[in-house]
Design a protein around this nucleic acid. Structure first.
Length: 419
RNA sequence: GGAGGGCUCGCAUAGUGGCCGAGUGCACCGGUCUUGAAAACCGGCAAACGAAAGUUUCGUGGGUUCAAAUCCCACGCCCUCCGCCA
């Protein structure tokens, strides 16, 4: 949720931001109108309530004869107060529900446009030229005994898979390497709950447009998270953080669950797009003035990871129309996938400024008062896609796969052999 | 699944309808004293909104009442015991 005071003072900025995203700018005027009415109703209520409170004190102090007269007034006043209170409540709800529809205000530097209007910031590494026909990760996964999608679908349906043998070991190595690097730069490792309550889901903004991609367990009214961003962000829900502790950084390792509704026919083969996968996610609570720098740092740590995996990639500045509603800017890293002859998203980092924290009521306190923190998130490693990138980029003619140096000590070898 | 107890300002607790936004102890902050510290003593000390007056907040939501931390209902969470499972 954006700052309603900011909206009052800069409606044009918010309108422009909504337009830039391809979203409805008319909401701005609805909010302005209902907020105005809300403030009037609030004032009306407060004045009546003040009167009631002071009258109430008189009643308490009055003698028995005086009391009856006072009670007459009190009763009529009480019904007025109740009426004013209901009106205030309705207008507050209306204003909030309208304001919640507004997305975060775009960073002016974010490229405007639709999905394809991203800006490439840089290319790192050169896609390899093969002197044999490169196999895709599905074939390699079979040869190495690393990925079993057939049994995955038998047991759990489409977009399901088993990681076995080398595949399972590769996950452990990737996670260990990721956590070790995160520790080096000051992250606190976290294993969060993946089953969360509505408040956590709502607060992180996943029950809006993204709701259809979330698994909901109706009987218990809990949700399976699509990313550990949810429990990490909600970790400090309703808390005031000491300013000197900022930035507070967590590296969460968890399973992630996604319904992938509306992606029929997209990436149906292999493990690029699946219902369940494990991920190490970086999350930072920081001072709003520091958010841009922190965003760059998260991106750098993502690049460091890709560099260590020795995989060619490019960094893109995601276009406004493709940003999540919480993000004011987003950088994706896309790894080169040889058999697709394309760069495909493997990590993503978003600056949510104070948008998410306002919903979750997470603040910091300094000499001037209590203000909303900024939150940022970034993928350190999403396992299946990283496995795809490693297998495909580091394969040999016989189907064996060379292990990046950074992972060798975790695996005790330098190559995955055929089984 | 069954029975009971609890949820109050950082912590512990007092508070059974008006004098309670709320007492006490500890912690914390400032001061006096001290060579310095401790102790003692004095003062301060919950939060949000608001320009202010003021309003709101005693787990959450609803209700009763002129008036609710206090009475009623529902829900959430914590604890104890029993059962069940490990």
């Amino acid at each position: 949720m954006i700052d309603i005071k900011f909206l009052r003072e800069n409606p044009d900025v918010v309108r422009a931001s909504q337009k830039g995203r391809g979203e409805d700018a008319a909401i701005v005027d609805l909010v302005l109108k209902s907020d105005e009415a809300r403030r009037l109703a609030l004032n009306e209520f407060e004045v009546l309530r003040a009167e009631q409170n002071s009258l109430s004190k008189l009643v308490a102090a009055a003698s028995n004869q005086e009391r009856n007269g006072l009670l007459e007034n009190s009763k009529t006043l009480a019904s007025k107060v109740k009426e004013a209170d209901i009106k205030r409540g309705e207008l507050e709800e209306l204003t909030k529900s309208q304001a919640m529809q507004l997305s975060n205000i775009l960073d002016p530097a974010a490229p405007i446009g639709k999905e394809e209007d991203f800006v490439v910031i840089e290319h790192v590494g050169t896609p390899r030229t093969f002197d044999f026909e490169a196999k895709d990760h599905i074939e390699l996964g079979k040869l190495l005994g690393a990925i079993d999608t057939e049994r995955g679908t038998k047991v759990a349906g489409s977009r399901s898979y088993y990681l076995t043998g080398a595949g399972a070991m590769l996950e452990f190595a990737l996670v260990n390497y990721a956590i070790a690097s995160a520790l080096k730069v000051g992250f606190t490792p976290v294993i969060p709950p993946v089953l969360v309550n509505p408040a956590a889901m709502e607060g992180t903004g996943f029950l809006g447009q993204a709701a259809e991609n979330v698994y909901h367990l109706e009987k218990d009214d809990v949700y399976l998270v699509g990313t550990s961003e949810v429990p990490l962000a909600a970790f400090h829900m309703d808390e005031v953080l000491p300013v000197e502790k900022l930035p507070i950084r967590y590296a969460g390792y968890s399973s992630c669950f996604r319904r992938e509704a509306g992606t029929y026919g997209k990436d149906t083969r292999g493990i690029i797009r699946v219902h369940q996968f494990d991920k190490v996610e970086m999350f930072s609570f920081c001072h709003p003035d520091q958010a841009k720098e922190e965003h760059k740092r998260l991106l750098q740590w993502e690049k460091d990871f890709l560099n260590a995996m020795e995989i060619p990639y490019r960094v893109i500045d995601v276009a406004s129309g493709e940003l999540g509603s919480s993000a004011n800017r987003k950088f994706d890293i896309e790894a080169w996938m040889p058999t697709q002859n394309a760069y495909r998203e493997v990590t993503s980092t978003s600056n949510c400024t104070d948008f998410q924290a306002r919903r979750l009521n997470i603040r910091y306190k300094d000499a001037e008062g209590t203000k909303t923190v900024a939150t940022l998130n970034g993928t350190l490693v999403a396992i299946p896609r990283m496995i795809v990138a490693i297998l495909e980029n580091h394969q040999n003619a016989d189907g064996s796969v060379n292990i990046p140096k950074a992972l060798q000590s975790f695996l005790g070898k330098d190559r995955f052999e055929l089984v």
